[in-house]
Design a protein around this nucleic acid. Structure first.
Lengths: 130, 130
DNA sequence: CTTTTATTTAACTAATTCGTTATTTAACAG
DNA sequence: CTGTTAAATAACGAATTAGTTAAATAAAAG
């Protein structure tokens, strides 16, 4: 699996609120599938498939103990996401540099009508409800 | 839009490698849709829809300049992801030794299978290919 | 062996996603 | 007006996703 594929699988897994809730639960400790399923108004097979998605993304691992399959969080996959985010972190942590100026100008133009509007012909948009 | 919905939309948008590549390009500066589309072996409508997904997730914003619609990165949505990650950051940043102890203790305190397998009989798995 | 408990797989459906080509809208140039 | 360029929308199909119920599997209990 390439790095890109891994990232796609991880983001895709995290896109579902049920799966994020499962991860939150597993952050408190290893637990069984039935325990994981309890808070959700959802059938066991549905939970089982969510767990499969999380496992495929490397976000959880499953053990075996008698007829239980305890699941535990695997943080390494989340580190992959964190690393990817690193590239963009500067955009909200540091000054926005030249982007900053552009945004200020844009905000100003939204408060006031822009001066480029020499010909104020307002055409009605077609797809907009009246 | 709730926080959960916003997170879902953001993760879902980031799950596609084309969209991540678009963000990487926009990190270098604002550009037009045609410029964004150039590196991809994909039709313009396909790119247009990817941009719509990114916009809906709040990851980009679109301006208007004559017949061009310049797109720019919106880092705030990524900060949302970073904040979510924060909850789990300890799991890969800190030592796992202490965590292992914590998890073991937690696991022991939670409800466990009432009895352990005293006699581990090894049966051949049925559905497994040789 | 039979039953119970925990979990997965099978089969199906509805909704969504991702791509296509064809058409349409919008702004501008001559 | 006509034509060109930039981008979006319409209409369509294939693939994936997320849920369901019913059945299968695995280990343990009686």
């Amino acid at each position: 699996m390439t790095q890109q594929e891994r990232l796609s699988a991880t983001f895709s897994a995290l896109a579902d609120p049920t799966r994020r809730a499962i991860l939150a639960k597993l952050a408190l400790g290893e637990t069984s599938v039935t325990e994981i399923a309890k808070p959700f108004d959802m059938s066991m097979p549905a939970i089982s498939r969510h767990l499969k998605v999380l496992e495929h993304a490397g976000l959880i691992a499953r053990g075996r103990e008698a007829q239980w399959r305890p699941c535990r969080l695997q943080a390494a996959a989340l580190k992959g996401v964190d690393d990817w985010l690193g590239t963009y972190r500067q955009f909200w942590e540091e000054s926005f540099d030249r982007l900053d100026g552009y945004l200020s100008a844009l905000q100003a133009s939204q408060k006031k009508p822009p001066r480029k509007n020499k010909k104020p012909v307002v055409k009605p948009k077609k797809g907009v409800a009246p």
